[in-house]
């Protein structure tokens, strides 16, 4: 999915297409984002957690 780094590499679980539209940041559970596949037209959920944090003030010497 182009344009949004958070969704880089997301593919449709049915047809593996990357031509996707993000439908909702919160899917059928809190842990999922809902997408629609432009190729096979199904709607699917993608498991979110990739460890990204919001903007965080930098602390010298903290291991990231």
């Amino acid at each position: 999915m182009s344009g949004d780094r958070d969704f880089a590499g997301v593919r449709c679980p049915h047809c593996a297409s990357e031509a996707l539209t993000m439908v909702s940041l919160f899917g059928s559970s809190v842990s999922e984002v809902m997408f629609r596949c432009g190729q096979c037209r199904t709607v699917f959920n993608w498991v979110k957690w990739r460890g990204t944090l919001p903007p965080t003030p930098t602390v010298p010497d903290r291991p990231s």
């Binding site: 439908v23 909702s24 940041l25 919160f26 559970s29 809190v30």
Partner: peptide, 13 residues
């Protein structure tokens, strides 16, 4: 609808 899903999801979290 995505707002409803988001607001409920954010409430749960």
């Amino acid at each position: 609808l995505p707002d409803f899903a988001a607001l409920l999801g954010m409430a749960t979290a």
